[in-house]
Computed example of a mutant assay.
Amino acid sequence: MAFQPIYDALDDRVWGYEALVRGASGEGAFEVLSRVSAEQKYRFDQDCRVKAIELASRLFPAGEDLKLSINFMPNAVYEPAACLRATLLAAERYSFPTSSIMFEFTENEEVTDTAHLTNIITEYRKHGFTTAIDDFGAGHAGLGLLVEFQPDLIKIDMKLVRGIDNSPSRQAVVTGILAMARELGMTVLAEGVETEMEFRHLAAGGIRLFQGYWFAEPEFERLPPVQVVPA
């Protein structure tokens, strides 16, 4: 696992870290996942969760209120309660609070059974987990996911963030997402921020949480320092 910080611009602090899958030689998540067969997906998903919690329990500074963001594959979850057992056991084993865990499901993974995903999110919330849609605005379902599932947090895809300071069309779309999120009581995070101007524009528009190379690149099994420029 590599870790990338999520920055809270309002409080000027690290809000949490996303755990990102890496191969033994540094391969990215896409390359690693491309080698996971359909039959292996469930075990792989479970092992990644446990590894992320184990590392976070060791790396996160004691006493700090930090979120651990873990990606999961809805199509790998056969029964929500049963699939959470390893997660809950790992949290107990490593004394890691379940309220500090956020599960992201990507909009890029096509969900064929919406009732199943609803059951997953309902079960996760019972245990105090935060839920998030990753890559929002660039995947299969778009607004339908907000209508059906109403997660706690939306991560705006980097394709909408890239060059937003000079793109009226991106500005209009992101403004609309922010308005919807306010109405639905959801938090918005901008991911893939790579320039100071992108950050300043998004912060001025009311976004509080940020992630991207402008703040820090992911680092293998350690917490990278965060570059912050006062707004």
Rank of each mutant, 00 (worst) to 15 (best):
A2Q: 06
Q4I: 03
A9K: 05
L10Y: 10
L10W: 05
D12Q: 11
D12A: 14
D12P: 01
V14Q: 08
W15F: 13
A19T: 06
R22C: 11
A24I: 09
S25Q: 15
G26W: 13
E27K: 07
F30S: 15
F30Q: 12
V32F: 00
S34Q: 08
S37M: 04
A38V: 09
Q40P: 10
K41R: 11
Y42L: 07
Y42F: 14
F44C: 11
L55T: 03
S57L: 09
S57W: 00
L59F: 02
P61L: 09
E64H: 05
L68W: 06
S69V: 15
S69T: 10
S69Q: 02
I70C: 01
F72N: 04
M73T: 12
P74L: 10
P74C: 12
P74N: 07
E79A: 12
T87H: 05
L88P: 05
L89I: 07
A91V: 11
Y94H: 04
S99R: 07
I101F: 00
T112I: 12
T114Q: 11
T118D: 13
N119R: 11
I120L: 11
T122I: 00
G128T: 06
F129K: 04
A132Y: 03
F136Y: 13
G139H: 11
H140P: 05
L143P: 02
G144N: 11
G144Q: 13
L153Y: 06
I154P: 04
D157R: 04
D157G: 07
D157N: 06
N166G: 09
N166V: 13
N166Q: 13
T175W: 00
T175V: 09
G176H: 04
M180D: 05
A181H: 13
E183G: 03
E183R: 06
E183D: 09
G185M: 08
G185T: 10
M186R: 12
A190R: 05
E191P: 02
E191F: 06
V193P: 01
E194R: 04
T195K: 01
T195E: 03
E196C: 07
E198P: 02
L202P: 05
G205Q: 03
G206T: 03
R208V: 10
Y213P: 01
F215D: 00
P218C: 14
E221C: 09
L223D: 12
L223I: 15
P225D: 10
P225Q: 01
Q227H: 14
Q227V: 12
V228G: 01
V229S: 07
P230I: 03
P230E: 09
P230R: 02
